[in-house]
Computed example of a mutant assay.
Amino acid sequence: MKKAIVQPSCLSSTTIENLKDTYPSVEEAQKPLWELLVAAMGSQHADMWNGMDRANLLLYYELLSDLISNIYNSNS
């Protein structure tokens, strides 16, 4: 039996369709996210961040990456 997927109202099917139309695979959707992280960590602004700020940015990346994976794996 397949588990029912409860989708938050803010994550409409149109939003998911737009994401998948723009980025047909999970890898394509995650690549810009990774590039943003690399750019942020390599920028001069990163020099002003303390260890906690950097850890929070990495956590944010991991959570968004997991969300993207779940969208692609749950809504085929």
Score class of each variant (00 low, 15 high):
6 V>I: 14
7 Q>V: 15
7 Q>L: 13
8 P>S: 02
8 P>K: 06
8 P>I: 12
10 C>D: 15
10 C>Y: 15
11 L>G: 07
11 L>W: 07
12 S>A: 04
12 S>T: 15
17 E>M: 15
17 E>T: 09
18 N>T: 14
19 L>V: 14
20 K>E: 10
20 K>I: 11
21 D>T: 14
22 T>A: 09
22 T>E: 11
22 T>Y: 14
23 Y>M: 04
24 P>K: 11
24 P>A: 04
24 P>Y: 07
25 S>Y: 01
25 S>C: 02
26 V>E: 10
26 V>G: 03
27 E>S: 02
29 A>T: 04
29 A>C: 06
31 K>R: 10
31 K>H: 09
33 L>D: 00
34 W>T: 03
34 W>R: 14
34 W>V: 01
34 W>G: 05
35 E>C: 02
35 E>R: 12
36 L>G: 10
37 L>C: 07
38 V>K: 00
39 A>T: 15
40 A>M: 13
43 S>Q: 06
43 S>H: 15
46 A>W: 01
46 A>V: 01
47 D>Q: 12
47 D>S: 08
48 M>V: 09
50 N>E: 06
53 D>M: 05
54 R>S: 06
55 A>W: 00
57 L>W: 02
58 L>K: 00
58 L>A: 00
59 L>T: 14
59 L>I: 12
61 Y>D: 03
62 E>R: 03
63 L>M: 09
63 L>T: 01
63 L>V: 00
64 L>H: 10
64 L>Q: 12
64 L>S: 02
71 I>L: 15
72 Y>Q: 04
74 S>V: 05
74 S>K: 07
75 N>Q: 02
76 S>E: 05
76 S>N: 13
76 S>Y: 06
